[in-house]
Design a protein around this nucleic acid. Sequence first.
DNA 1: TCCGTCATATAACATATGTGAGTGCGAGGC
DNA 2: GCCTCGCACTCACATATGTTATATGACGGA
Lengths: 240, 240
Amino acid sequence: MFINPLILKLEQRDRLSDDEKRVLESAISRVRVVEADEDIVHEGDHPSESNLLLDGFAARYKIFSNGRRQITAIHVAGDFVDLHSFLLRAMDHGVLALTPCRIAVVPHTMLERITAEHPHLTRLLWLNTLIDGAIHREWLTAMGRLSATAHMAHFICELFLRLSTVGRADGDTIQLPLTQAELGDTLGLSTVHVNRVLQELRKEGLIRWQGDALTILDWERLKTVGEFTPTYLNLQHEHR
Amino acid sequence: MFINPLILKLEQRDRLSDDEKRVLESAISRVRVVEADEDIVHEGDHPSESNLLLDGFAARYKIFSNGRRQITAIHVAGDFVDLHSFLLRAMDHGVLALTPCRIAVVPHTMLERITAEHPHLTRLLWLNTLIDGAIHREWLTAMGRLSATAHMAHFICELFLRLSTVGRADGDTIQLPLTQAELGDTLGLSTVHVNRVLQELRKEGLIRWQGDALTILDWERLKTVGEFTPTYLNLQHEHR
DNA sequence: TCCGTCATATAACATATGTGAGTGCGAGGC
DNA sequence: GCCTCGCACTCACATATGTTATATGACGGA
């Protein structure tokens, strides 16, 4: 029950046997809650368990000495925020709760057992981290070669799609509980420029954003502006 | 014998049994050579084998409609340039040979067999793709929050270290067979600005770059300028 | 009720980086 | 021995984005 959003996500990519679902559910040792603005994992930690987000928004981030910050990933329900720590061991970045987060904790010993006994499930967990990598690559191209406006449009398209695949979109609107400063740290922009860019998208009639509710008014044009094609999210169902 | 650089790389991160080394070597179905400026894999392909770089330089890249290009990774000897295609199936980007490349070809059927029969080896291959991801994250922070000069310095530090771990550094100098245009596509800069930034690093006495030979004249200051700390490369030896 | 805090919004100005055009050099082809 | 051609390099100029500062409104605590 707990793990539902992950199973939902994996089943979009490949078939899961009942046995595999059971293994996934029983891999959870406990569920915990982390308050907004608290770290889920600290940079430099050597964790012995990984965190699966059941509800809420989280961000992976790195901080520089002088306080500048870069967010390298936004995570939503169904995402393993630090599955890689199972093999990487040391956290090379922190993970922050952007909203209150409900989290399923999976001990690394359970992951090791899965790799020993369930090859297909192992491949699907591996796949999960590979999709993270694909998203990172897409973000790299967006940062490197898109204008700030296009980058923002691209980001919104991606987040909308990812939320809708885990049943977290309501028609054309999603919850976007990020401040403009956090958006800036995500896109590599100053907060002032984030504001300018949002104004522009609003003026063009592409989005509406009031409070936490972001609604896409013109999906086609937003996709065009952000040069967005979702193949990198690997939403096809295939045997893996 | 062929696979040497990969084994070298993996053994820096964990112990490999003789059996595992044998399995890795026998996973290679053939060795091929790709000329400079040719694709090793095309975007959109559904490959049935993965490519392990034995010699040469390769780049992963995405192209936009209007010709702009972003390179999302530079690969050197010992790197699996598209191990992820084993599970991702469709290539969401192309892989280009920057120099003539000698490549070991590993059929996905062999990888599937490794995941079925060799859990520890599977984890090490998984680890390989996780390190790719860690590098992507580092590049994201560099693109988002470093100046062009710092970004360049960071890139040079990283490449130097990665080459030296596979025995491809000669003292303080490495081969850097990239044009300034390719460097620009890597860092998200125009070629003109790449040139400016290189002049600056040279004038400051941090590097020398003549022909393909890049030598680091002042490692400490280059690291400082690029805000480079190599933990993300996961060079520690640990059980995984 | 008032006061601090935090987020959004704007403005004026500064600057890093991009653009377009052009030079010169060296390597390889014929 | 000449002619391309690609690449490094430069210059003048354009512009996207950053910086600093201030105003405004929502909210929660005392």
